[in-house]
Design a protein around this nucleic acid. Sequence first.
DNA 1: GTCTATAACCGGATAGAC
DNA 2: GTCTATCCGGTTATAGAC
Lengths: 238, 238
Amino acid sequence: MIDSQPPAKTPKGAQTRALILRTALDLFTERGYEGATMRAIAERAGVSLSHAYYYFRSKEELIQAFYLRSHEEHMAACGPLLARERDLEARLLGVIRAKLDTTEPYHRFSGVLFRTAADPQSPLSPFSAASNPVRQQCTSFFAEVVAGSRTRVPEDLRAELPYLLWLYMMGIVLFWIHDRSPGRIRTYRLADRTAHIVARLIALAGHPLLTPFRKATLQLLADLREDTRAEDAVQSLP
Amino acid sequence: MIDSQPPAKTPKGAQTRALILRTALDLFTERGYEGATMRAIAERAGVSLSHAYYYFRSKEELIQAFYLRSHEEHMAACGPLLARERDLEARLLGVIRAKLDTTEPYHRFSGVLFRTAADPQSPLSPFSAASNPVRQQCTSFFAEVVAGSRTRVPEDLRAELPYLLWLYMMGIVLFWIHDRSPGRIRTYRLADRTAHIVARLIALAGHPLLTPFRKATLQLLADLREDTRAEDAVQSLP
DNA sequence: GTCTATAACCGGATAGAC
DNA sequence: GTCTATCCGGTTATAGAC
């Protein structure tokens, strides 16, 4: 993959780059993606148009930079909770809420981000090879969320659960992107309820009635992963 | 909403319109959404640029037209199966497979379509107000899928199940869009397995152990819908 | 009502002189 | 690094043909 963090060869350059990014995010938030023209971004940041293109090879690359920063903020925001809380539902809910909280300032513009990330051809797609590291990071993060709880997870499920939980969070974020309710109550409500359901489901996963479902689901994941290996190693599952 | 099927007042006009659409789909498939310029579409179709805009008010509307046609083809393809088969799993699987079959020719271009449709600001988003009619059509279609089967569905679940199944299919399609395996085997496998799981889950939904989950899920949907109604009142303003 | 030709506007992106 | 000119493509407008 191409490095997505291009010029920043001097401290001054890094500062300028950060300034442009910050300005762009402001303008995106104020006027939306289309409304925030590169000319306007450059002008407000006090640099020339071509200089903006010097640091960000395209308008899209500005979004990519934002994406990475947001991800790191989420991780940081979860630290204290995960150190303190032992209840799985609370941990799960805390992580989801932290995701929503940290990204909220950029909700309006996140639709655009998603639009880009949704394209399977795009390196921003969460299923793309380029996103492999991030995906890996996310699943091992969720492994920690589970491992640090007092909930006992059936042996066979343990390996797959982090990936499934990542998918679950992706689903919440997808909903959040489309949510225009004030204060995003609908998404928070969705998170509350589903975190409860998911946590209960995990706790009950070992029950005989659910065992066929658990087995079937795990088998499915295993098979899909098998297919992936057969391909050119460039696919969705970790 | 504005009518999205503008001029076609004579048979000749309809023919020209169809020609432009067909040409556009070819070009989208060949060159992607961005690569297929309106100018190129018009040229290959043998009409003037302004004439293309006469039949399709925007480039986006071309995609929308495709979307509708694809939807109708899917419905048609399911007819025979639904008339014959009574087993829920088979019906469900047949419907999903028909969806995959009918859309396969446009897989490459569907990624592009999705990229547009994924933007909540876009009227192409399946969750947008503009898509309301299609969404409605889809859910009542799934209602028929369930009603025509011999599986008994708990009273409270019956009303929501069609919508849930539509969401389920959307999930399969999302996976399909990202699936680059030969012959799309991975998606077909996913469909086979999940159709089984989903059908079993529906059949067991009335079981005491699962009842809390069923209730929680239905309550969640009801609440979310409640929120939506409160919004829509406000949202209809310009 | 179908269709052409032509010009123009706007904003993203690039090239090249300075 | 910056500025200017320029390209490109979506979109609109006009004026008029059959």
